[in-house]
Amino acid sequence: MAGETLLEVRNLKKHFTVEADIFGRPTAQLKAVDDVSFSIAAGETLGLVGESGCGKSTTGRTIIGLYQPTSGEVLFKGENISAADKQVMRQEIQMIFQDPYASLNPRMTVGDIIGEPLDIHRLAKGQERTKRIQELLKLVGLNAEHANRFPHEFSGGQRQRVGIARALAVNPSLIICDEPISALDVSIQAQVVNLLERLQRELGLTYLFIAHDLAMVKYISRRVAVMYLGKIVELAETDKLYASPRHPYTQALLSAIPIPDPAVERNRERIRLEGDVPNPINPPSGCRFRTRCQYAMAVCAEQEPKLTYINGHAVACHWAAE
């Protein structure tokens, strides 16, 4: 299924200036994304997980160009995105947003929302536009008559489908799903994920699936990257990562997934992390996870562990490397 590399992210950094002196020089910076590299093959789904504020959404938004990267580059089909034609890139890479209640303009009809990308890129007009909108609505499992309705008349799951239809309107090849299901009810989550899978099969889409729900990521992704404080700490194929996590942080995350079997669940041992996530404006020296890591060693405070690949399983940890 996985073909050639579609998207490659190289040493991507996105720093936000939190404070500046009177000359506009930054005095405090939030390193939301700090030296992140990964690639996505055409047709695959890469899951990107991590807790709130670890930089996973910022990574997605920087890739699509909502934020200007501080440094590093994003290559799409081998071409640097910042140098490429913006309008072409806007059609190749699309995004599905987290909150279906906030991501649709309440003053526009669903038809106009889905039609807006068609208008902007002059893809269809008049009759053709109407037809295309109806086609898209059907594709995501809504009725063609819904085009004249307003977003507030829809349920959360239906709105998310509208958001998906809008992203599909320009026939993109990569879709960045920014926590597309975390705002939905559990029963609706499955519907939307299944829809995304069906669309992937039918249209040959590639997904970057950002989420914090590990069980859902396991279900949809071929490979998973785990982020902590702006860095990728582990990246491996889904089965490998879930079967034998090597980074202490991934181990702790996975141990927190409840198991739907009372007998097993009763004996489940959870690794509890001590303390809170450190302030990203002033992260710990060396390994960023060392303040909460049960295996922390002297070297962890001094040297920053590099993300190293062993048999396609990448991990950034001194302890795991030994």
Binding site: R61, I64, G65, L66, K86, Q87, R90, Q91, Q94, M95, F97, A102, S103, L104, N105, E116, P117, I120, H121, G163, R166, A169, V170
Partner: peptide, 9 residues
């Protein structure tokens, strides 16, 4: 929805 409008160009 404004971010969405920006991502569609």
């Amino acid at each position: 929805y404004v971010l969405a409008a920006r991502t569609i160009g």
